[in-house]
Amino acid sequence: MTILRFQGQDFVYEAPRTVLESLAEHGVEIPSGCRAGVCQSCLMRCLEGEVPAGAQEGLKPALVAQGYFLACRARPSSDLTVALADAEGLRQRAHVLAVESLNQEIVALRLKPERPLDYRAGQYLRLYRQADLSRCYSLASVPTLDDWLELHIRRIPEGRVSAWVHDQLRVGAQVEIGDSLGQCFYTPGQEEQTLLLLGTGSGLAPLYGIVRDALAQGHRGPIWLYHGSFTVEGLYHQTALQRLAGQFPNFHYVPCVDRAGPEALALNARVGTVLEAAVSDHRVFAHHRVFLCGHPDMVKDARLKIFLGGASMAEIHADPFLPSGT
């Protein structure tokens, strides 16, 4: 007998149904569309057991690596524990190791989770102030390089979580965090491909992780990181990124600011948006793997422009979460 476990309940699975059909028979409706493995509406994640053969066809490598599969294509031959793709997963406690200011409005929050967190550089997690008050932040740390989790948190005017982090969290405090989420990360393979990363403000966080992760995994192709802000004061990690560029000849760091000035000159920063700078440097994006993070308008414009510039949609990675207004 094969058991399908979903949200803590056990269901008997009978071949040759799909996971989608089997759950439906037990009264559990999973969102679905074409039921032919194409539209990806019924995306689920395997938490335990073996992902059934053929159930991951057509998914991005990033999703495959994390055990995502299509419920309409999955015919399990052994027990399987599954979750909805957007399930938040487990929460756990973490200790505050440091709250360091990166610039006037962004701090780095370093955390030590009680249980090791299984994550990839570039993913994000939910940080809880209270059970019903939380926000998502991207991870800037890399599991193989850093002993801690690092989040970059910008102070949002009236922000109830960001203000708490900036003004109240101290070393030694305990916080709660959720599971790692998101598909914006580096997967090995195609080591010669050009990586293009565009970020604004604290959107640098996941990109900083992805760049270091790709370099650590031996990516050999050019890696271009564009970090934009209104003024030079809004940038951060310049020294670390310039040092990294000195160390790895295939890594290029391009700071971009909206306003020209002596500080911009001193840093060799480009004047204009990250997208303008990337377009003028690359023009065609046909073979690029792209990562976008930051202001929603930037992400939207860049996705369109870079796709029309020849990048495949499957090669453009951006996490859909929007920073909350408060």
Binding site: G33, C34, R35, A36, V38, C39, Q40, S41, G58, K300, R303, L304, F307, M313, A314, I316, A318, P320
Partner: peptide
Amino acid sequence: VDMEKQSAKQKAFLTMAFGGPNHY
């Protein structure tokens, strides 16, 4: 519409127009 989701829907559209498997 969200471009990434839309891209998956474009696939559904093409599969249909190509006479491929679908349940629409």
